[in-house]
Design a binder for these strands. Structure first.
Length: 437
RNA sequence: GGAGGCGUGGCUGAGCGGUCGAAAGCAGCGCACUGCUAAUGCGUUAGGGGCCAAAAGCUCCUCGAAGGUUCGAAUCCUUCCGCCUCCGCCA
């Protein structure tokens, strides 16, 4: 969400952003609706003013006849067309939520994924003197992953993590959580069942309201009424990441500048409906409906330079973890066409998967400037006591399944065992995962 | 699940049809004063929008949310949401 004043004054830049981000929005339509809205707003204000003045008069008059006359006069006032006004307001809101943040100057212009720019690489994809297996094969032979039972019980994309796999995956989570804490991030376990505002506020609804056709979010119905959509307000949803829960923690707050930046990290189960990716990545643990993740979030003051530095700090921590885990990775700067509307600047981290022979997104760092904080109403008081919207940033610390895959595939031995990365050994109590272990 | 209570400004809390965007206290800020991080006095402090180049000023909306009654609602009615207490049930 942007400020309508800002939109009016930067219409050309925003049109450029709409084009580059490939958003379906006619800004001129919004500006036109905005003008209509302004006229109607003034009409209503005038009416209210007249009405208020009249009511003041009535309250001072004791005489019944005079009073009646004034009441009649009030009835005669022409009331604004509220239906028309509401229609305009609704249209305005609908268009407003689709206005994107203007991307940073260093963001590559591009159509989609293929135009993201590699900006950093750590280590080269590992070479094996045997044909590396996929995590699917390894998971089965080591008896640490079970997709058949997962599908039976959880349905499509369901899975079980078993035995040393369960310890490994929890180890990854604990390792990431402790790393974040060591970097000054306050740990949190936030709710994963949340109200709509948290998701809308973070930008997880594409429109004003939840739309199951396009939003990758599960809605939870606790009654028949909710299930049929009658009780459309105050529904609950399952988050796809801790980000909305962590951000909403600060909603409606006015923080103090001296306490910024606030760094928090959260552990959560993440649920994704993966609507629109029915035929994509259908095998294995790569794209699943639920997983665990440690997420990092920063509330920063409204300073682009500082926010960019914080974003670099956050991606740096993710990189450091990949390095400590010994996972070759690269960092991509996300291009305009692959960037969601609210983002100002974004980077992905991708780890190399030798078995699947592909890069796998294991993290995504985004700087939203004040796009989210306007929706969530996160402010801070600056040195002069002026209130400003905070800048909000988020980044993956580590996701459980893809880090898990990367470890299995990178650390496999010719014999089909998996060596446990040094930093995770304390969580498994062993150095190697074997079928017999 | 049953019974009751409550949602007001940064916080506590009064108001229960017009004089209320709102007493009082606390906290914050400013000024004054006292020779010293405290005390006292006075003043000041909700958010969002419009007019205006801007400031000043004027003005509209907002007392959990949405409807309703009324010339007029923080105050009355309905529904919803949230919170609290007690009982039941339960990880």
């Amino acid at each position: 969400m942007l400020d309508i004043k800002f939109i009016r004054e930067h219409a050309d830049d925003i049109k450029e952003a709409i084009k580059n981000k490939r958003i379906d929005l006619d800004l001129d339509e919004l500006l036109e609706v905005d003008r209509k809205r302004a006229v109607l707003l003034r009409e209503e204000e005038l009416f209210n003013q007249q009405k208020n003045e009249l009511n003041d008069e009535i309250s001072k008059i004791k005489n019944e006849a005079e009073r009646k006359a004034l009441v009649e006069k009030g009835r005669a006032l022409r009331e604004p067309d509220s239906e028309k006004f509401n229609a305009v307001k609704e249209k305005f809101d609908e268009l407003m939520v689709r206005v994107p943040t203007i991307p940073s100057p260093d963001t590559p212009i591009g159509k989609g994924e293929e135009d993201n720019k590699e900006v950093f690489r750590w280590s080269e994809p590992k070479k094996f003197n045997f044909e590396p297996k996929t995590h699917i094969e390894l998971g089965k032979s080591l008896d640490i992953l079970d997709f058949d039972k997962g599908a039976k019980v959880g349905g499509f994309r369901g899975y079980y993590v078993k035995n040393d796999g369960a310890l490994l995956i929890m180890g990854i989570m604990m390792y990431a959580l402790q790393k974040m804490v060591s970097k000054g991030f306050r740990p949190m376990i936030p709710p994963t069942l949340v109200k709509g505002f948290a998701l809308f506020g973070s930008g997880y609804f594409k429109g004003l309201e939840y739309n199951p056709e396009v939003d990758e979010i599960y809605q939870v119905a606790t009654s028949d009424k909710e299930a049929t959509g009658e009780a459309s307000k105050d529904k609950k949803f399952l988050v796809g990441t801790a980000e909305p829960s962590l951000l909403a923690y600060f909603s409606d707050e006015t923080l103090l500048r001296q306490e910024l930046p606030i760094r928090v990290c959260g552990y959560s189960q993440c649920y994704r409906s993966e609507i629109g990716s029915y035929s994509k990545d259908v095998k294995g643990l790569y794209r699943v409906h639920e997983f665990m993740k440690i997420e990092q979030v920063v509330v920063a003051e409204a300073d682009i330079e500082k926010a960019n530095r914080l974003q670099d700090e956050m991606t740096g921590i993710s990189g450091e973890m990949h390095e400590e885990l010994g996972l070759p990775y690269r960092r991509l700067q996300i291009c305009t066409g692959d960037m969601s509307p609210g983002k100002y600047r974004a980077f992905d981290i991708e780890a190399w998967l030798p078995g699947m022979k592909r890069w796998a997104e294991t993290g995504s760092a985004s700087n939203f400037l004040d796009w989210q904080s306007r929706r969530l109403n996160v402010k801070y008081a600056d040195a002069l006591g002026e209130k400003r919207y905070a800048y909000l940033l988020n980044n993956t610390a580590l996701p459980s399944p893809r880090t898990f895959i990367a470890i299995l595939e990178n650390y496999q031995t010719k014999e089909g065992n998996v060596v446990v990365p040094e930093v995770l050994r304390k969580y498994l109590g062993k150095e190697i995962i074997t079928p017999l272990s």
